[in-house]
Simulated assay, not measured.
Amino acid sequence: MSSAKEVIVIGAGIIGASIAWHLAKAGARVTVVSESGAGGVATPNSFAWINASWGNPETYFRLRRRAMAEWTRLADDLPGLPLAWCGGLCWDMPTDEQEAYAAGHSSWGYGIERVGRDQVARIEPNLAELPDLALYIAEEGVAEPVAATSALLADAERRGARIVTGKTVIALTRSGGKVTGVEMSGERHAADEVVIAAGTGAPAIAETVGVKLPIETPPGLIVHSRPYTKMLNGLVLADRLHMRQTAEGRIIAGSDFGGADPGEDADATAHELFAATKTMLRGGEGLELDFHTVGYRPTPVDGFPIIGRAEGADGLYVAVMHSGITLAPAVGLFAAREILDGERDALLAPYGLNRFAQ
């Protein structure tokens, strides 16, 4: 890979941090610009589930599967990365849909095991309500989102990257049809390539050079308990809510992994959701609600990632998606290769911005 390219990465969430780290590791001169600190806006509000689950087409499953493998590679490169392959229990869909999901993903090589009531109790002995049948995927895991992002940025900085926080990118600069840098707070910074990995802020930045990003930003409320004794071994995706326990002992939960609809009164919604969480756990009466978060998920309108160069804006690379935690290490690796060597991984073929022009 080239060691000469100057690259500005806009965004310090998990995607921007991974792209910056992979670029710096490859020898590029990298500057990360973010209005907020490590984690950005969406990452701190993430359920942080690493998986290739759900009703995805096989092409997207393959990308997510590769990303799971890249998390293992990343952990080897960054010892101490807060990553746990804790496994996940799932019974949050009708029986026929659950069976179709299990059959399809199993045929693609996903390690899904059908488990009964007794096995569920052995896997998660503190569940107060047990399903007659659930799916168990031992290879799924979690990354503590802000800590993982901070670790990537710190190591990128150690490798020579500049991390600039508290600065707002007002516009991209352009010359002769090529993006040449960014303007922020009255300053202009030149670059050979600019990467937009700014989540919900990405469309406004791209619009400054006439690039439209078709993205929705649905909200998701997640409740966080005060740190508590060990109650959950892994992910629990039940029919009423999804929950897990963080490395510091907090039970976090949402009506699904994306979080609950906050409704008209987010505080009231949080208290209702937390009450439901407590009833799901034996011994849960001692849990105390610490806080809730409402995150806005940067979700392309067709549900799939936007990863790649923007046509008509040479020098601009876009990486915006909802499944940032799962995809981060693979996106970082593939984006760095494409930016520095022009080498686009075949797994990214369906996820260019140009698909929306069709």
Score class of each variant (00 low, 15 high):
residue 304 F to G: 01
residue 211 V to T: 10
residue 15 I to D: 05
residue 346 A to Q: 09
residue 119 Q to Y: 06
residue 117 R to E: 13
residue 196 I to E: 10
residue 82 P to W: 12
residue 212 K to Q: 02
residue 62 R to W: 07
residue 225 S to K: 05
residue 339 I to A: 13
residue 324 G to D: 05
residue 10 I to A: 10
residue 45 N to L: 06
residue 5 K to N: 14
residue 354 N to C: 02
residue 295 G to N: 12
residue 192 D to A: 13
residue 222 I to G: 04
residue 56 N to S: 11
residue 140 E to Q: 14
residue 132 D to Q: 15
residue 50 I to M: 05
residue 180 T to I: 08
residue 238 A to L: 02
residue 138 A to T: 09
residue 252 I to Y: 02
residue 103 A to Q: 12
residue 207 E to F: 04
residue 245 Q to A: 09
residue 131 P to M: 07
residue 221 L to K: 03
residue 19 I to W: 09
residue 185 S to L: 07
residue 58 E to G: 02
residue 115 V to T: 13
residue 191 A to P: 03
residue 163 I to D: 08
residue 333 L to R: 14
residue 263 G to H: 14
residue 60 Y to V: 07
residue 59 T to E: 15
residue 9 V to Q: 01
residue 23 L to P: 02
residue 316 L to T: 10
residue 317 Y to W: 08
residue 1 M to N: 05
residue 189 H to Y: 00
residue 14 I to W: 01
residue 14 I to M: 04
residue 62 R to P: 05
residue 344 R to P: 05
residue 235 L to C: 00
residue 173 T to F: 01
residue 254 G to L: 04
residue 256 D to T: 15
residue 193 E to K: 11
residue 276 A to N: 13
residue 198 A to H: 11
residue 1 M to H: 10
residue 106 S to R: 15
residue 116 G to N: 10
residue 173 T to L: 11
residue 56 N to F: 15
residue 181 G to L: 11
residue 183 E to I: 02
residue 234 G to Q: 13
residue 351 Y to D: 01
residue 348 L to F: 09
residue 93 M to F: 02
residue 100 A to I: 10
residue 99 E to K: 15
residue 145 P to N: 12
residue 104 G to I: 08
residue 231 M to L: 15
residue 310 A to W: 06
residue 212 K to N: 10
residue 244 R to H: 04
residue 141 G to Y: 07
residue 120 V to D: 12
residue 161 A to W: 10
residue 52 A to F: 06
residue 83 L to V: 09
residue 281 L to G: 03
residue 25 K to N: 07
